[in-house]
Design a protein around this nucleic acid. Structure first.
Lengths: 205, 205
DNA sequence: GTCTATAATTAGATAGAC
DNA sequence: GTCTATCTAATTATAGAC
């Protein structure tokens, strides 16, 4: 690999990382390519050189944010080696919470873009969000955590919202509660809390 | 009241309504006063005339979004006339979900601004969000729904997130699930689902 | 691959006519 | 109270030097 290719990959990576942060903070319209350039230590012209236009940059940033969600959750669940269906379901919820806690940009991208039915939402659903939802609904219905597919939709948004909001508004959370949602012990407590909330102990004890 | 005063109030109201929509959709930086003017059927100069600058307009819009939360929830809870502490707690959760379902801008304002510790967040917490959180934590701890104040923080974000996400991303939700989060029956089902999730039946049955 | 310079567009805020 | 016109600054995207 030539030096130029290495340089290209590294620079693109820095720009994408800055783009993720900026789009998550300000949304597509609110983010400027100049700020993204500034954060990644390059000039605005170079951003256009590498990504043609703002829309393409947004897609690459979104790809970076959403990719690896499945793999990461599967890995985390496997590491816990759950033995019962209930423990498997809880492990999945915990894995999800930990994942979004470490990548709060996920939920911010969704909320920033999820209001209006534009091409970006279309792309996001077709590329990333759709299959995640299908898998979740399928599993939770099969595992008996949700009574049926209809209820699983409510369970899905309950988990996604309950698991992520705290990490999507870190400055607000710190100011209101004094709790730092970036602290590992807070993440662990929230993961466990939400897992027990969504997958409660059986009625018998 | 003179015609001019009526006109003033009515125009300001239209601008604020458009500002709420636009800020909720695009965030402070992404929203333009020109778009807000266009949506309310006036010119951009008039927005500045009535609200001096974008920051003041945002605060008035936020005030409009967050005001009445307490009153509305209290009214909805009273209308159900709950008799047990458990039913009271559930009624509060249902009231909260219904409220944010009909005013999804609430959660979008929080997510849009809650990331960075800027003056708007400071103002939002001091003016609206702080006391709401205090009341909730106090009640849920007292009612025994949360074990202690520490757990109540997690319960709070679980409720706020679980109860609102679906309504904060209506276009996304429709596209992913086919469910319309604006439909009254969907709101009712979600309110009931989240209430039972957060305030479960007692272990004994 | 990166920068500087620039064109065309759009932003927020002000001034003046009515 | 409302509109039009305008100023200044910031935006995206392009072109050309190195």
């Amino acid at each position: 690999m030539t030096t130029r290719e290495q340089q290209r990959i590294e620079t693109r990576g820095r720009i994408i990382a800055a783009a993720v942060e900026t789009f998550a903070e300000r949304g597509f319209h609110g983010a400027s390519t100049r700020e993204i350039a500034g954060r990644s230590g390059v000039t605005q012209g170079l951003v256009t050189y590498h990504f043609q236009n703002k829309d393409t940059l947004w897609r690459e940033a979104a790809d970076h944010v959403f990719s690896g969600l499945f793999t990461d959750i599967r890995g985390r669940v496997a590491a816990e080696a759950p033995e019962t269906t209930r423990e498997l379901a809880r492990a999945m919820v915990r894995a999800y919470v930990r994942h979004v806690a470490e990548r709060p940009a996920i939920m911010r991208f969704l909320v920033q873009e999820g209001h209006t039915d534009d091409p970006r939402i279309e792309w996001l659903v077709d590329t990333h969000v759709g299959q995640m939802h299908q898998h979740f609904v399928g599993f939770m219905t099969m595992a008996g955590v949700a009574a049926d597919a209809d209820e699983a939709v409510h369970l899905y948004y309950a988990m996604a919202g309950a698991g992520s909001l705290m990490f999507s508004v870190p400055a607000l959370c710190r100011r209101v509660t004094g709790v730092d949602p970036g602290a590992p012990e807070v993440i662990e407590r929230h993961a466990d809390f939400v897992a027990r909330l969504l997958v409660p102990d059986p009625p018998g004890g």
